[in-house]
Write a protein that binds this DNA or RNA. Structure first.
Length: 223
DNA sequence: GTTTGATCATAA
DNA sequence: TTATGATCAAAC
């Protein structure tokens, strides 16, 4: 059991110490078994890094490092540093969100301060072979926050106006809504076309790779 | 049953 | 080749 870091600087330092390790090497240090593929362990890499850094275990509606207000996210990248997957942020409120504002939204709080941990994760690399990259702390620039805010407001308006069935992953320039559930039969309450409650597929906010690419460029190739 | 951690599988 | 829609396991 690794204790949480006391400062953001300590967290960053710990994360940077892991750069260059493969996931197998890190798992070995922590006595954790490595899956042969991700088909039944999709979140394994993220959980491994959380444990290694002393994040609070378990799934709770608060940052991974509550005392620091910092969220950790792994980011699978190619050998030339391009994000290979979208990044899940949080589930979307499907009802009772009247009067919700960007400033107080769960999404904004989740992304307030993020420790990004790039992972070299090309498809031909097994979980064991994937390699930890150079972690960094991030806060959205004014431009980035505006971009997310515009997508959030557009998508939340559709949800609150009962247009849930019209939503698909094509909407949103930098952030999209996609299904987020164990399978397609899972339903939750949502607002219907006439303001009534209807059953709909739970959805989550995901950052497009265009957004995380922007984050990486800001960090590693400014200007 | 819901939210966390995400990647998979295949349509486009 | 890329992105959408679907899915998997653990924690709670």
């Amino acid at each position: 059991m690794i204790l949480p870091p006391n400062t953001a600087q300590e967290l960053l330092h710990r994360a940077q110490q892991l750069a260059g390790l493969t996931l197998q090497e890190l798992a070995q240090q922590l006595n954790i078994e490595v899956p042969h593929d991700f088909s039944r362990d999709k979140g394994w890499g993220g959980i491994l890094l959380e444990r290694a850094l002393g994040a609070t275990a378990g799934s709770r509606p608060e940052p991974d490092f509550p005392a620091l207000g910092i969220e950790m996210k792994t980011l699978p990248i190619s050998s030339i540093g391009q994000p290979l997957e979208t990044t899940f942020v949080c589930v979307a409120p499907m009802k009772g969100m009247t009067g919700e504002h960007w400033e107080t939204s769960a999404l904004r709080h989740k992304l307030d301060h993020v420790l990004w941990v790039p992972i070299l994760a090309e498809k031909h690399l097994s979980p064991a072979e994937r390699q930890i990259g150079s972690a960094f702390l991030w806060r959205a620039s004014a431009e980035q926050e505006l971009a997310l805010r515009q997508d959030w407001e557009e998508l939340m308006e559709l949800l609150s106006l009962g247009r849930v069935e019209r939503i698909n992953a094509h909407l949103g320039q930098f952030m999209q809504l996609r299904p987020k559930a164990a399978n397609g039969s899972v339903k939750t309450d949502a607002i219907g076309a006439n303001g009534e409650l209807v059953q709909a597929q739970p959805k989550g906010f995901y950052l497009r790779t265009s957004f995380t690419q922007w984050v990486l460029r800001q960090q590693f190739a400014p200007e």
